[in-house]
Lab assay of single mutants.
Amino acid sequence: MGFKLLSKLLVYLTASIMAIASPLAFSVDSSGEYPTVSEIPVGEVRLYQIADGVWSHIATQSFDGAVYPSNGLIVRDGDELLLIDTAWGAKNTAALLAEIEKQIGLPVTRAVSTHFHDDRVGGVDVLRAAGVATYASPSTRRLAEVEGNEIPTHSLEGLSSSGDAVRFGPVELFYPGAAHSTDNLIVYVPSASVLYGGCAIYELSRTSAGNVADADLAEWPTSIERIQQHYPEAQFVIPGHGLPGGLDLLKHTTNVVKAHTNRSVVE
């Protein structure tokens, strides 16, 4: 069995187990497998329904001669939608809004960016022009300005110390501490036991640490421990890039980060 097929099978099995364990909360999309990078042309966006009122959005972007996937989250909030992270750029984010209108038909009224990198804030200006209120932590807003990236308009308070959590509509926002970046936030959907790890969490097929220019490698494993301790009931975990899975993604990420750190020390 090929690795790609095995990865998709694991996603399907995880979703099936969740649907059985929580039949009222989960209505997993039966329309197909989780979209992969090879299936999404740059400039297009796919939506994948995880649970009743919960979707991931998947886009792709060219970077350094390669094409990478990027995940975000959409959560229903009454007759409105909360968006977590842009679709990595203005063109993708405009396509995301169009796809949401086509498939869901509810307005996106608020959006949260989970850290300051372009795959999370690139497209904020498109959201703002569409009347979406954009939010991020003060740290993310400051770092985005320093980096020359787009800056969300509103500040999220109460997320300055490791372990801080605040309720934001249908989700809980959690600051686990520094990891992929010093400002990275985690998003949890309690009604569906869905954990969105953003770039602080890796997919299972990833074996290298990737972009760690703004990471705190020493603190990252401790931050992941905080996530595990705060959300032990999480059933569906979405990484910032690639295929979702279960809580095993947290341990896998820790292993990859520690291996990278150990290699760096040896070198």
Rank of each mutant, 00 (worst) to 15 (best):
Met1Leu: 06
Met1Gly: 07
Met1Thr: 06
Phe3Ser: 11
Phe3Tyr: 10
Lys4Asn: 14
Leu5Ala: 15
Leu6Val: 14
Ser7Gln: 10
Ser7Ile: 11
Lys8Glu: 13
Lys8Ala: 14
Lys8Arg: 10
Leu10His: 15
Val11Asn: 13
Tyr12Gln: 10
Tyr12Cys: 10
Tyr12Phe: 10
Leu13Thr: 15
Leu13Met: 11
Leu13Asp: 06
Thr14Asn: 09
Ala15Arg: 13
Ala15Asp: 10
Ala15Met: 10
Ser16Met: 05
Ile17Met: 14
Met18Ile: 15
Met18Ala: 14
Ala19Pro: 14
Ile20Ala: 12
Leu24His: 14
Leu24Thr: 14
Leu24Ile: 15
Ala25Asp: 13
Ala25Asn: 13
Phe26Met: 15
Ser27Lys: 11
Ser27Gly: 13
Ser27Leu: 13
Val28His: 14
Val28Arg: 09
Asp29Gly: 10
Asp29Met: 11
Asp29Trp: 14
Ser30Ile: 10
Ser31Leu: 10
Gly32His: 10
Gly32Leu: 10
Glu33Asp: 10
Tyr34Asp: 07
Tyr34Leu: 09
Pro35Leu: 07
Thr36Trp: 14
Val37Cys: 08
Ser38Met: 12
Glu39Met: 12
Glu39Asp: 12
Ile40His: 06
Ile40Lys: 05
Pro41Asp: 11
Val42Asp: 13
Val42Met: 08
Gly43Ile: 01
Gly43Trp: 03
Glu44Trp: 08
Val45Pro: 14
Arg46Cys: 06
Tyr48Leu: 14
Tyr48Val: 15
Gln49His: 11
Ala51Cys: 05
Asp52Val: 11
Gly53Asp: 14
Gly53Pro: 04
Trp55Arg: 03
Thr60Gly: 12
Thr60Arg: 08
Thr60Met: 10
Gln61Ala: 13
Ser62Gly: 12
Ser62Tyr: 07
Ser62Trp: 09
Ser62Leu: 07
Asp64Glu: 09
Gly65Gln: 11
Val67Met: 15
Val67Thr: 15
Tyr68Ile: 11
Pro69Ile: 11
Pro69Val: 11
Pro69His: 14
Asn71Pro: 02
Asn71Val: 03
Leu73Asp: 02
Arg76Gln: 11
Arg76Pro: 03
Asp77Phe: 06
Asp77Asn: 07
Asp77Ala: 06
Gly78Ser: 09
Glu80Trp: 03
Glu80Asn: 09
Leu83Lys: 00
Leu83His: 00
Ile84Asn: 01
Ile84His: 00
Asp85Val: 00
Thr86Phe: 00
Thr86His: 00
Trp88Leu: 00
Gly89Met: 00
Gly89Lys: 01
Ala90Thr: 13
Thr93Asp: 00
Thr93Tyr: 00
Thr93Ala: 01
Ala94Asn: 13
Ala95Cys: 05
Ala95Leu: 11
Leu96Ile: 05
Leu96Lys: 00
Leu97Thr: 02
Leu97Trp: 00
Ala98Pro: 06
Ala98Glu: 12
Ile100Glu: 01
Glu101Pro: 06
Glu101Cys: 04
Glu101Ile: 06
Lys102His: 13
Gln103Ile: 12
Gln103Phe: 13
Ile104Tyr: 00
Ile104Met: 04
Leu106Glu: 03
Leu106Val: 10
Val108Gly: 00
Thr109Ala: 10
Thr109Pro: 05
Thr109Leu: 08
Ala111Glu: 13
Ala111Thr: 07
Val112Asn: 00
Val112Thr: 03
Thr114Asp: 00
His115Lys: 00
His115Ile: 00
His115Asp: 00
Phe116Tyr: 10
Phe116Lys: 01
Phe116His: 06
Phe116Ile: 05
His117Met: 00
His117Pro: 00
Asp119Gly: 04
Asp119Ser: 01
Asp119Lys: 00
Asp119Glu: 03
Arg120Met: 01
Val121Leu: 07
Val121Ser: 01
Val121Asp: 02
Val121Trp: 00
Val121Cys: 03
Gly122Met: 13
Gly123Cys: 04
Gly123Tyr: 03
Gly123Trp: 04
Val124Phe: 05
Val124Ala: 08
Val124Glu: 04
Val124His: 06
Val124Arg: 01
Asp125Gln: 10
Asp125Lys: 09
Asp125Met: 08
Arg128Ser: 13
Ala133Trp: 08
Thr134Cys: 04
Thr134Glu: 00
Thr134Gly: 01
Tyr135Val: 01
Tyr135Phe: 11
Ala136Ser: 09
Ala136Asn: 02
Ser137Phe: 01
Ser139Gly: 11
Ser139Phe: 05
Thr140Leu: 04
Arg142His: 14
Arg142Glu: 14
Leu143Met: 11
Ala144Val: 07
Ala144Glu: 03
Ala144Pro: 05
Glu145Thr: 12
Val146Ala: 14
Val146His: 14
Val146Met: 14
Val146Phe: 14
Gly148Met: 08
Gly148Cys: 04
Asn149Lys: 14
Glu150Arg: 01
Glu150Asp: 13
Ile151Gln: 06
Ile151Met: 09
Pro152Asn: 01
Thr153Asn: 09
His154Ile: 10
Leu156Ser: 02
Leu156Val: 09
Leu156Phe: 06
Glu157Asn: 13
Glu157Ser: 11
Glu157Leu: 11
Ser160Asn: 13
Ser162Tyr: 11
Ser162His: 13
Ser162Thr: 10
Ser162Ala: 14
Gly163Arg: 05
Gly163Met: 05
Gly163Trp: 04
Asp164Pro: 05
Asp164Cys: 03
Ala165Cys: 06
Ala165Val: 13
Val166Leu: 12
Val166Phe: 06
Val166Ile: 12
Arg167Ile: 13
Gly169Ala: 05
Gly169Phe: 06
Gly169Arg: 04
Gly169Asn: 03
Pro170Ile: 05
Pro170Gln: 06
Pro170Ala: 09
Pro170Met: 05
Val171Pro: 02
Val171Arg: 02
Glu172Cys: 03
Leu173Val: 11
Leu173His: 07
Phe174Ala: 01
Tyr175Pro: 01
Tyr175Cys: 04
Tyr175Glu: 01
Pro176Trp: 02
Gly177Arg: 02
Gly177Leu: 04
His180Gly: 00
His180Ile: 01
Ser181Gly: 02
Asp183Trp: 02
Leu185Ser: 04
Ile186Gln: 02
Val187Asp: 04
Tyr188Ser: 02
Tyr188Glu: 01
Val189Pro: 00
Val189Thr: 01
Val189Lys: 00
Val189Tyr: 04
Ala192Trp: 05
Ser193Gln: 14
Val194Arg: 01
Leu195Ala: 00
Leu195Asp: 00
Tyr196Trp: 04
Tyr196Glu: 01
Gly197Ile: 02
Gly197Arg: 03
Cys199Asp: 03
Ala200Lys: 03
Ile201Thr: 06
Leu204Val: 11
Ser205Asn: 10
Ser205Lys: 10
Arg206Gln: 15
Thr207Met: 13
Thr207Ser: 12
Ala209Leu: 08
Ala209Gln: 10
Ala209Pro: 10
Ala209Asp: 06
Asn211Gly: 11
Asn211Ala: 15
Asn211Thr: 09
Val212Tyr: 06
Val212Lys: 07
Ala213Trp: 07
Ala213Gly: 11
Asp214Arg: 07
Asp214Val: 07
Asp214Leu: 07
Ala215Tyr: 05
Ala218Phe: 12
Glu219His: 08
Glu219Arg: 07
Trp220Cys: 05
Trp220Gly: 02
Thr222Arg: 12
Thr222Leu: 13
Ser223Ile: 04
Ile224Trp: 02
Arg226Met: 08
Ile227Asp: 02
Ile227Glu: 02
Gln228Ala: 12
Gln229Lys: 14
Gln229Ile: 13
Tyr231Thr: 02
Pro232Asn: 08
Pro232Tyr: 08
Pro232Met: 08
Glu233Met: 11
Glu233His: 12
Glu233Arg: 13
Phe236Val: 12
Val237Ser: 02
Ile238Ser: 03
Pro239Val: 05
Pro239Asp: 01
Gly240Gln: 03
Gly242Thr: 05
Gly242Asn: 03
Gly246Cys: 04
Leu247Arg: 15
Leu247Met: 13
Leu247Asn: 15
Asp248Cys: 05
Leu249Ala: 01
Leu249Met: 08
Leu250Ile: 07
Lys251Gln: 15
Lys251Met: 13
His252Asp: 03
His252Phe: 01
Thr253Arg: 02
Thr253Phe: 00
Thr254Tyr: 15
Asn255His: 09
Val256Pro: 00
Lys258Gln: 13
Thr261Val: 14
Thr261Gln: 13
Thr261Lys: 13
Arg263Glu: 15
Arg263Tyr: 11
Ser264Ile: 12
Ser264Asp: 13
Val265Ile: 12
Val265Ala: 12
Val266Trp: 12
Glu267Leu: 09
Glu267Asn: 08
